[in-house]
Structures are given as structure tokens and as C-alpha cells.
């Protein structure tokens, strides 16, 4: 079969025809030019890859991802939130204020034990927990409550039998903490993802744990 100019495209698709095509290219300038163009299209195409710096793009994507994960993006605009916040202030600030007052007369605080949660750091934190973080927090909370239950059990005999000013002080503090914990837990129940509520709750648990340890430490000394 004689190779003609019209066969060139078929030749480019099918390598079997290539030896014949090569022969034709030697004698045909038109096909030679087309063949050169065919190769050039591929090499020039590589230069079409468009590259430019976008330093703000990933931060913007990340921000958008985080914003989508916040279950209540406009939480601060909601009246319900303000009502809950006001209730929380009453539930936490008042008891803690009273507690601080009573602390002034209490014995010096013990050095926090190794199990003291790190959640009490006063560093600024994001407002909301993600689903997975929340699961972890709830798991930790359960462990925390278990540890407090154990300490309460150990401290119970001391608290019910002793009437020293120190123990009376601690009983009062524990009662205040219990009511603050109950209030905060109620708020957390309706706003589980709120990191500030969860942090406040963790702080209350930590205080309760420390108070119970104080009770037990008098026990050891007495």
C-alpha cells in the first residue's frame, strides 16, 4: 500500500504504519511540517501549565473548613445563648467568688497532682469542639467523674463525722462546686460543642478533685 499525505493522521495514531510514514516524510515537506507540529503541540503544551503563588489560599480553605464545622456559627447572635451565658455567670462566678472568699481562711493549697487535667490552662482556645474532639472530651469527663466518685467515697467518712472548721469549710466548698457543676452540666447538655463551657466544667471538676484531696490530706495528717 502506497503511503499518501492523507494517511499521515492514521500513521500518527498507529505506530505500525510508522516505518512507511517515515519514508514518506523524507520526501514530503508538507507532511514533515505537520509531523513537526504534532510533536511541538505536546512539548508546548507542557508550558501551558499555569503556576502562580497563592499563599492565602490554603489558610482561606482551612478557615472555611473550620467555619463549616462550627455547629452554631452565629451563636453569639442568639438570644438563647445570652440567656444561657447569664445563667452560667450566676452559676459559676457567684459560687467561685464565695469559694475564693472561703479559701482565704482555708489551709494552703496542695501542689496539683500529676493527674491534674491540662484543660485548666488559661490560654485562649477556639470556641467550639469538633465531633471527634468532643467524643474524646466526653470520654475524659467520664474518667474524671469516676476518679471524683472514688475520692468522694474515700472522703465521705471524714466529711460526715468530723466537724472541724477546716472540714466544714471544705463541705461548704464541695456543696457550692456540686451546684455549679450541675448548672454547668445542664448548659453543656444543650451546647455540647462549646469549648468554653466544657473548659469551665473541667475547671470545676478539677477544683472538686483538689478539694476532696484536701479533705483526704487532713485525714492523713490527723
Amino acid at each position: 500500500m502506497k503511503f499518501e499525505c492523507g494517511d499521515l493522521e492514521r500513521a500518527l495514531a498507529n505506530s505500525d504504519l510508522f516505518p512507511e510514514a517515515r519514508e514518506h516524510l523524507k520526501s514530503c515537506a508538507v507532511c514533515r511540517r505537520e509531523y513537526r507540529l504534532w510533536s511541538e503541540i505536546s512539548s508546548v503544551a507542557r508550558e501551558l501549565h499555569e503556576e502562580w503563588d497563592t499563599p492565602a489560599l490554603w489558610p482561606s480553605i482551612r478557615q472555611a473548613i473550620e467555619a463549616e464545622r462550627k455547629p452554631e456559627r452565629i451563636w453569639w447572635k442568639q438570644r438563647k445563648t445570652w440567656a444561657a451565658a447569664a445563667a452560667l455567670v450566676i452559676a459559676i462566678v457567684v459560687p467561685v467568688g464565695l469559694w475564693r472568699h472561703s479559701v482565704a481562711t482555708a489551709p494552703p493549697a496542695r501542689t496539683p497532682a500529676a493527674t491534674t487535667p491540662t484543660a485548666t490552662r488559661q490560654t485562649p482556645t477556639p470556641d467550639f469542639l469538633t465531633e471527634q474532639a468532643l467524643r474524646e472530651v466526653e470520654k475524659s469527663e467520664a474518667a474524671y467523674r469516676q476518679s471524683i466518685a472514688k475520692l468522694s467515697q474515700l472522703a465521705a467518712p471524714k466529711l460526715s463525722t468530723q466537724s472541724s472548721p477546716e472540714v466544714a469549710n471544705e463541705k461548704e466548698r464541695l456543696a457550692l462546686l456540686d451546684s455549679a457543676i450541675a448548672e454547668t452540666r445542664a448548659s453543656v447538655a444543650s451546647n455540647r460543642f462549646n469549648i468554653r463551657l466544657q473548659t469551665a466544667l473541667a475547671d470545676l471538676y478539677r477544683q472538686k478533685q483538689e478539694t476532696l484531696r484536701d479533705v483526704l490530706s487532713h485525714d492523713a495528717k490527723n
Binding site: 493527674t115 487535667p117 491540662t118 477556639p126 467550639f128 471527634q132 474532639a133 472530651v137 475524659s140 474518667a143
Partner: peptide
């Protein structure tokens, strides 16, 4: 036992 409140886990 450590509370991871400061750093939500999917980011950390």
C-alpha cells in the same frame, strides 16, 4: 488522663 480541650483533636 489528659483533657485535650485546648487543641481539638482533628487539628492536633
Amino acid at each position: 488522663m489528659v483533657w485535650e480541650i485546648g487543641l481539638p483533636l482533628p487539628f492536633a
